[in-house]
Design a protein around this nucleic acid. Structure first.
Lengths: 193, 193
DNA sequence: TTTTTTATTGACTGACCAGTCAATCAATAA
DNA sequence: TTATTGATTGACTGGTCAGTCAATAAAAAA
C-alpha cells in the first residue's frame, strides 16, 4: 500500500533497525537484508533510500551523535553556574540510555569504523570537539588551565564509558558518574584559579 | 619445501599478517585469504593451524595483549618507588609502538569484538584487571582511596589512548602521557594519605 | 480520465568467502 | 628401504551478500 510521505518514516525505521541489528550482532558485520527485514521492508528499499550500506551506517552514526548532542543541550539549558554545567555534562554522558546494549555496540563499532572511514572519523571528531569546548567553557572561571583540565575530564568520561560499556551488564552505572564527578572535584581543588 | 618444525614460525607469521591486515583495512572484516597471502602461505594452512577465523583473531588479540603486558613488566622491573611505578605504568601504556596504526586498529576492533565474543571479552577484562591491580598497588601508600584513584587513572589512560589513537596521525603522543601524569599529580595532591 | 510521481519489491547477478578434503611432498624413524 | 608423520596446497562446495533493474501499484497532479 504505497503512500506518499513515507520517506522520513522509512528512513527512521531503517536507522532504528540498524541500531537494533548492531546491538543484536555486536558488529558492523550485519547484512542489509537483516536490517530491512527488521524494519519490515525489502532490502532493495534500504538501498533506494540510503544508496548503500556505508551511507546507512553513517546516517545511523549521525543519528546517535544527534541524540547525544540533544541530551547534552537539554541538560545545559537553564543551567548557569559553571559547576552545575560540569555536572550536567557528566550526567548527560552517563545517562542510562547511553548504556543500552545496542547503543554501546554502535559506539564501539563507530570507534573502529573511524579508522577506516574518514567520514566516520569526521563525525566522531565533531562530537569530541564539542564536548571539549563545552568543558573548557565551564572550566574557564574555575581553573588555571581550562584546556588541559578539559582534556583530562573528557578522557575520564570516554575511558569510564569504555569500561562501563564493556563491563558485563548488571553493573551499576552511577559508579562511572560518581568517579567522574570526584575527578572534577580534584581538578577544581588542585588548580583553583 | 615442507620442513619439520614450521608450526611456530607459521603461527607467528599468520598473527603478524593478521595485525597488518587489520591495520590496512581498519576492520575485522578481512579475509583469511588476504591474511594467508600476506603471510606467504595458502588459506588452507591458516585453517590448518588455527582452526578458523575467530580463533585466529583471538590468538592475535592474545599476542597484542601479551606484548603490552611484557612492556609493562619490563617497565616495572627494578622500579621500587610507588611514584616511579605509576609513571612507568603510564609511560609503558603510551609508548610509541602502541600507537602504530595497525596496533590501534587492533585495539579498537577488539573493543568492539568484546561485545559479541565472550572469549574476547574475557581477554580484555584480564588486561583491564591487571592494569587496575598494578595501579592500586602503587597507589596504596600514597592516597586514601587507592581503589577509586586507580579506577580514575585507568579511565584517563584508556580515554587518552582512545583519543590519541583515533586522532589524525602527525599528533604528538607525548601529550597523552603528560596529561596522564598531571592527572596523577592531582590525585596525589588532592588525596594524600 | 490520463499522466506523473512516489513507494516498493521480486528476481537476479556477479562476486566473494570460510571451511573441507584428498592428495602431494619432504624429512625422519624404523 | 619402507613406513610414518608433518607441512602444504589446489580444487571445490555450499552459502552469502551488496547492489541493480525493470515492473507494479497507489496516490496526486493535470
Amino acid at each position: 500500500m504505497p503512500k506518499v510521505g513515507m520517506e522520513p518514516i522509512r528512513r527512521e525505521a531503517l536507522i532504528q533497525a540498524t541500531i537494533a541489528e548492531i546491538g543484536a550482532k555486536g558488529t558492523l558485520d550485519i547484512t542489509v537484508s537483516a536490517i530491512a527485514r527488521r524494519a519490515g521492508v525489502s532490502p532493495a528499499l534500504a538501498h533506494h533510500y540510503f544508496g548503500g550500506k556505508e551511507q546507512l551506517f553513517l546516517s545511523t552514526m549521525r543519528y546517535i551523535l544527534g541524540v547525544y548532542g540533544a541530551d547534552v543541550r537539554a541538560a545545559l539549558r537553564g543551567t548557569e553556574a559553571p559547576q552545575a554545567r560540569l555536572e550536567a555534562l557528566v550526567l548527560a554522558g552517563f545517562a542510562p540510555e547511553h548504556f543500552r546494549r545496542e547503543v554501546v555496540s554502535a559506539w564501539m563499532n563507530f570507534y573502529a569504523l573511524a579508522l577506516s572511514s574518514s567520514a566516520a572519523a569526521r563525525l566522531l571528531s565533531v562530537y569530541q570537539r564539542r564536548l571539549r569546548a563545552n568543558l573548557r567553557h565551564a572550566l574557564r572561571p574555575l581553573v588555571a588551565d581550562p584546556a588541559a583540565a578539559a582534556e583530562r575530564i573528557a578522557a575520564v568520561i570516554d575511558g569510564l564509558y569504555l569500561r562501563e560499556g564493556l563491563a558485563p551488564r548488571e553493573t551499576e552505572h552511577r559508579h562511572a558518574a560518581d568517579l567522574a564527578m570526584t575527578h572534577i572535584q580534584l581538578e577544581l581543588k588542585g588548580a583553583a584559579q
